[in-house]
């Protein structure tokens, strides 16, 4: 479970996150939805300890998160923006490296890597260098790497960016599978369809604040609209919304 209360972060004169609070429960997929520059990535980066907050706090399974708090990061699998793999290592080696940094080794690690390769249907590509992988393959390896230590919580920053339709479908299947296994999944997106198709809970962020939160149906009711997209635009006020179809 991920809990965020009163989070704020400023870069110089830019207030990236002003006041963000929400809860992402276990066994649910929570979507962080908002236009570009709304503060989604910053919120996630505060959660996985790349940044420390100016105000407020973020907790993972009740453990305080931040650069100095390694315990919270143990409960967390992270797929940051753009995956960021090592091109000279094979997919399997990329996954193994993170496993070893989590303190895993030997047969247990081998077995876990095999499991992930099977689960994400990496197939033969698993033994190839990731140089030249398609974006879809990279994201899959990135997710496998994030899951190698079997964390309860998974954070994905814009995972569908640059993926084709087939890759997005298979990513959805993977995330649904993880939800069924009781994981807490938090992902950010500025693509409405993504969130509508996948999320149990939606947190809409704009200008560094939470504008609305709840299940998609609740949001539609709240805004009095028939589609989530209309609700999104109405809740944001159309001038600030930058929604990609």
């Amino acid at each position: 479970m991920i809990q965020v209360t009163g989070l704020a972060k400023r870069f110089g004169t830019v207030e990236a996150v002003r006041d963000v609070s929400f809860t992402a429960p276990d066994g649910r997929i929570t979507g962080l939805l908002g236009p570009n520059g709304a503060g989604k990535s910053t919120t996630l980066r505060l959660l996985y300890g790349a940044l420390s907050p100016d105000r407020g706090e973020a907790r993972v399974d009740g453990l305080l998160a931040g650069p100095e708090h390694t315990e919270a990061r143990r409960q967390l699998g992270v797929l940051p923006h753009g995956a960021g793999l090592y091109p000279h290592l094979t997919a399997r080696e990329n996954i193994r490296y993170f496993g070893e940094l989590h303190g895993m080794s030997g047969a247990a690690l081998d077995q876990r890597v095999d499991e992930l390769v099977a689960m994400l249907e990496l197939g033969e590509a698993a033994n190839r260098k990731t140089q030249g992988f398609s974006q879809g393959q990279k994201v899959k390896v990135g997710i496998a790497r994030a899951l190698v230590h079997s964390p309860r919580n998974l954070i994905l920053d814009e995972p569908t960016n640059g993926l084709d339709v087939m890759a997005i479908r298979s990513l959805r299947e993977v995330l649904r599978g993880l939800r069924a296994a009781g994981h807490c999944i938090l992902f950010s997106s500025h693509v409405m369809q993504e969130v509508a198709a996948l999320c149990d809970e939606v947190v809409i962020i704009a200008g560094g604040r939470v504008v609305a939160a709840g299940a998609p149906e609740q949001l539609r009711e709240q805004a009095g609209t028939t589609t989530l997209e209309d609700a999104f635009v109405k809740l944001l006020g159309s001038d600030t919304a930058e929604v990609q179809p």
Partner: peptide, 15 residues
């Protein structure tokens, strides 16, 4: 540059 530093610091490993 490759963007692999971000996932690296998200690990429970000290800088």
């Amino acid at each position: 540059e490759r963007g692999s530093l971000e996932p690296l610091v998200s690990l429970p490993v000290s800088r």
